[in-house]
Amino acid sequence: MRRTREFDPEVPVPRSPWDEIVPGLWMGGHVWTDGAGGLRRAVVGDEFALVVSLYSVPGHGPGTGVEHRVAPIPDGPLAPAELDAVLDAAALTVRAVRAGRPTLVRCFAGYNRSGLVVAHALYVLTGRPASEIIALIRWRRSPWALHNGLFVRYLHAGLDAAHPSLTDRPR
């Protein structure tokens, strides 16, 4: 399996385990820093009805009875099967949000992979342009959210356009 996390010492660790981007849709990671600057594990209990993990570590939840979908993808160029996993995760997220189910989409830090899925889900939910969705995510989660330029290009092109054989997918 390809590596699913790249370490970048220039990027600060988030200051919260997760943040609400729009009502019912949260974006987060597996680590965060507390007010004193200490590194903390982001462990999910039963705060959400659905957790979509694009990076997963044992012991980070979610709790028993919470629907959990794991779809590991790299924080880099995505192969067709990985783009398919992103689209599937976004479609699951859209269905959950539309049904009023509190949903967390997470990756390692809660910046890029989770941002890609949340942004595509918001595109499906709202039809807003990628630039507005990216700005919203950065405002609600962190200015470091979606700092992966390739993922931003995917969003501006449209994930379906990034892999044309996926253009007829149901949403």
Score class of each variant (00 low, 15 high):
M1L: 04
E10S: 13
V11G: 04
V11I: 15
V13C: 12
V13M: 13
V13T: 15
P17T: 03
W18D: 00
M27G: 07
G29E: 07
G29Y: 08
V31A: 09
T33Y: 02
G35L: 09
G35Y: 00
L39Y: 10
V43E: 03
V43K: 03
L50G: 09
L50N: 06
V51H: 06
S53C: 04
S56F: 12
V57D: 02
V57Y: 06
T64P: 13
T64M: 06
P72E: 02
I73A: 01
I73H: 01
I73F: 06
P77M: 01
P77T: 05
L78C: 01
A79L: 13
P80M: 00
A85I: 11
V86C: 04
V86F: 12
L87W: 08
R95M: 08
R95T: 13
G100H: 06
R106G: 09
F108R: 13
A121E: 05
A121S: 11
Y123G: 12
R128S: 15
I133T: 15
I134H: 08
I134K: 11
R138W: 13
W139A: 13
P143I: 12
W144S: 14
H147E: 13
G149Q: 15
F151K: 06
Y154V: 12
L159K: 10
L159V: 14
D160V: 14
A161M: 05
P164D: 02
S165G: 07
R169V: 04
P170N: 00
